[in-house]
Simulated scan of single mutants.
Amino acid sequence: MDGNPHSDTALLADADLGRLMPMYLWVAPSGHIRSVGATLAKLCDGFALTGTRFLEVFEIRKPARVQSMEELRVLAGQRLHLALREPPRTPLRGLVVPLQEGQGVLVNLSFGIAVADAVREHALTNADFAPTDLTVELLYLTEVKAAVMEELAALNRRLQVAQRAAEAQALTDALTGLANRRALDQELQRAIDGIDRGSEGFALMQIDLDYFKSVNDTLGHAAGDLVLTSVADALRTATRRHDIIARVGGDEFVLILPGPIDEAMITRIARRVIEDIEKPVAFEDQPCWVSASIGVTLSRLYDRPDADRMLHDADAALYFSKRRGRARCTIYTPGIEEAEMVQPDCGPPEPDWP
Rank of each mutant, 00 (worst) to 15 (best):
P280R: 06
K145N: 13
E121T: 14
Q189V: 09
A179G: 07
Q100I: 11
A10N: 12
E340H: 10
G51T: 10
D128E: 10
D16G: 08
V281F: 06
L171H: 06
G102L: 09
S299N: 08
S68Q: 12
D308W: 02
A183F: 00
P348A: 13
L72I: 07
D185L: 00
L301T: 05
I266Y: 05
M21N: 00
R158H: 12
A246F: 04
V231L: 06
T239E: 01
G259N: 06
V281A: 08
G201W: 01
F202Y: 07
C346M: 00
P87N: 12
Q189K: 09
E200D: 15
S199Q: 08
P29F: 10
A166I: 03
P22K: 07
I33Y: 06
D313E: 14
V231H: 03
L298E: 03
P98F: 08
P258G: 08
K62Q: 15
Q78H: 13
S199T: 15
E340I: 04
R181S: 07
D128A: 07
P260Y: 08
G112K: 09
P344W: 08
G335T: 01
E350H: 13
Y302N: 09
P351D: 10
E137I: 05
I277L: 09
G104N: 08
A146F: 00
K279Q: 15
L82V: 09
L184H: 03
A10R: 10
C346R: 05
E86D: 13
R240I: 11
T297L: 04
A183C: 09
L204H: 06
N180V: 01
T90C: 15
E143R: 13
P22M: 11
R190N: 01
E284S: 13
G250M: 09
A317D: 07
P305I: 01
R304V: 14
L311A: 03
F283T: 01
R309K: 12
A118F: 03
R85V: 13
A10L: 14
R309D: 02
S299K: 04
V57M: 08
E101T: 14
K42Y: 00
L139E: 07
L95N: 10
T333C: 12
T176G: 00
I113A: 15
R93F: 11
I331V: 15
L99V: 08
R190K: 11
G104R: 02
A232T: 04
L84G: 05
G177T: 03
E340W: 01
Q286S: 14
L204Y: 02
Q160L: 12
E284R: 13
V227Q: 03
E350K: 13
H6Y: 15
S321G: 07
